[in-house]
Design a protein around this nucleic acid. Structure first.
Lengths: 198, 198
DNA sequence: CGCCTCCGTTCAGCATCTTGAACACAAGCT
DNA sequence: AGCTTGTGTTCAAGATGCTGAACGGAGGCG
């Protein structure tokens, strides 16, 4: 299912109080195109969509970032946090990325020697954290660094990253991950298993 | 002066260590198309670009929000974190919401008796945190709760909220905030004041 | 009523994107 | 040398986006 650009564009246009023709005039395209796009009868080229959004005005990034959100529960006791992982690496999930939330917050604990694999290309969005206790060795992209209490990190999840507790003490981290991208089950035909270089 | 999608896509692809053909296979398009896009010889349709980015994977929003300048800083030492606030409430900002980043991470310290006022309601986005040390009294909307080490919270920033350290010990919190959507920039002639889509 | 102006939709035809199969070059291996 | 596998590029042909001009409907006004 392709994303519903049509509805998105329509809501934007209506929000600005413009008719299809008015928007078309500003954008330098024809009203027919606006109509077709809003009905999802075409998938506009990026250049066309950019022209259209320039007439609003709105950036492509803003357009695609548009989303909704809701928020039920506020407080979470330590005991009721969902815990995943094993003895080596435990993760307490404060707020799942589900339910349209824009943020996941984790309370992680790394036993001495524990490490996360080179989990690759799985996450999206961005990730940040603060070391609360102990020390952790973090590798992102090419570079490696050992972080202690109070130290922090921030990187795009798509970059290959690896956490490892090289010390003797338990390491504790509070980390946040964005966004809550609804896991689209996109089975890629012929997706290679080990096609990753170093 | 079409935006250089080509360079952007190329840098993304290379960052993942994929060849044009490898990416094409994952994305379900042909290698020729990848080549043409990277040379800016075509302006891909949104559906095609989405297919391509799904092979990375990366969302359209992330792609267009991407800064041209490659990846920013990853590691932050405790000492170099920007500190704001006073003696009562100190905030160390790991990553500002600027520069297209989608996440702000704070390391906050509340002295005994310290409190944040009933803050701004204009602040959009969501906010979550974990108590690392001490106890904090949190009021969100109507309800109040005292949270201890390991306890957590999650709420939408629009709700009136207030933090207060009612104990005698310093309270330490790591919290994450999703930034408010950047408002539309240029004033549009004839832009209606308040027209939110339902 | 007729006439005008706006709205969103539709469609033939032209422009552009996209494919599939070539091409040329480089590196490794027999 | 040849052979194989990889890289990125190019191009005719087919698929799709896009235009320009139509269409039908909803008001407003004489």
């Amino acid at each position: 299912m392709t994303i519903d650009i049509g509805a998105k564009l329509r809501s934007v246009r209506v929000a600005f109080g413009l008719s299809q023709r008015a928007l078309a005039r500003r954008a330098g395209v024809t009203n027919g195109l606006i109509s077709l796009i809003e009905q999802n009868r075409v998938s506009p080229s990026v250049s066309s969509l950019k022209k259209v959004l320039d007439g609003v005005p709105m950036t492509l990034a803003e357009f695609f970032a548009m989303d909704e959100g809701g928020q039920p529960q506020v407080f979470f006791e330590a005991a009721e946090l969902v815990e995943t992982g094993d003895a080596a690496v435990s993760r307490k999930l404060v707020a799942a990325a589900r339910a349209g939330r824009q943020l996941s917050l984790l309370h992680e604990r790394f036993a001495p020697g524990a490490a996360t694999g080179d989990e690759i290309l799985e996450h999206r969005g961005e990730q940040a954290g603060v070391v609360v206790r102990g020390r952790i060795e973090l590798t992102v992209g090419g570079s490696t660094r050992v972080l202690g209490p109070g130290d922090a990190y921030y990187f795009a999840c798509q970059l290959p990253h690896r956490f490892r507790n090289a010390g003797r003490e338990v390491c504790e981290i509070v980390s946040a991950v964005t966004p809550p991208r609804p896991a689209v089950a996109a089975p890629v035909p012929g997706f290679p298993a080990g096609a990753e270089p170093a």
